[in-house]
């Protein structure tokens, strides 16, 4: 998590559903089965109920199982991606599977914050840009997408498609390959001063 990331390039995998929830991303039952197996086994359970049927066979029609999209680092979703739980395994599973970015019309808040903290790019695009991307993906051979994290631009086969928005601090952490722990360490005195001030005015905040 210490390397800089200024661009993401590759095939975009279209999963154009709205409200993809954290139970869809990492369902409880298979996750419990690999419990203790570590984050490097989460690829097995990502979208488990959609990738596999009840007998454990691959569902060929699910987009992650379509050969031409295999290994694509960018997931293209609809609205409100990642709604539901705060479980960070939803982000870890996407990363472990090989995704580096999710492009969506909107994200659920906790998922979005978890994504930044793990340097998975949650790129928000407006409806027009989203529609343009979807249109480009209708080609027989999936086109190469590139995301420029510094310029906040998306291109397909070197042709500019549009821009994306992202949280300023979150994006900076991804681009610079840093996280907020080091930043916060500088502000420990500010935190202490704030807590002192609060406790003087409201002693019950510190009582326990």
């Amino acid at each position: 998590m210490t390397s800089k990331l200024t661009s993401i390039e590759g095939v975009a995998v279209p999963l154009l559903w709205d409200n993809v929830d954290t139970d869809a991303l990492v369902p409880a039952a298979p996750h419990k089965r690999i419990n203790g197996g570590g984050r490097d086994r989460l690829r097995e359970v990502l979208f488990h109920e959609f990738r596999f049927d009840a007998a454990g066979q691959l569902k060929p029609e699910f987009v992650l199982n379509v050969p031409q999209f295999a290994g694509g680092p960018i997931l293209l979703a609809g609205e409100n991606f990642g709604c539901g739980s705060s479980r960070e395994v939803a982000v870890w599973a996407l990363l472990d599977y090989g995704f580096r970015a999710v492009i969506a019309k909107s994200f659920a808040e906790i998922f979005e914050q978890n994504a930044y903290k793990n340097h998975l790019l949650p790129a928000t695009v407006d409806a027009a840009t989203h529609a343009r991307i979807v249109g480009e993906l209708r080609r027989p051979r999936p086109p190469q997408m590139s995301i420029d994290l510094v310029a906040r631009h998306i291109a397909i086969d070197d042709q500019a498609i549009g821009s994306f928005s992202a949280d300023e601090m979150g994006l900076e952490m991804i681009v610079q390959g840093v996280d907020e722990f080091a930043l916060t360490a500088q502000y420990v005195p500010d935190i202490a001063a704030t807590q002192r001030r609060l406790t003087e005015a409201c002693p019950w905040l510190a009582d326990r």
Binding site: E88, Q113, N114, M169, T184, V188, I191
Partner: peptide
Amino acid sequence: FGIGSTEIAHALAYQALWLP
């Protein structure tokens, strides 16, 4: 409010969180 596991670590370490 609910937070992810990395945020839990940050909250335990600093008793604070960066939030939009």
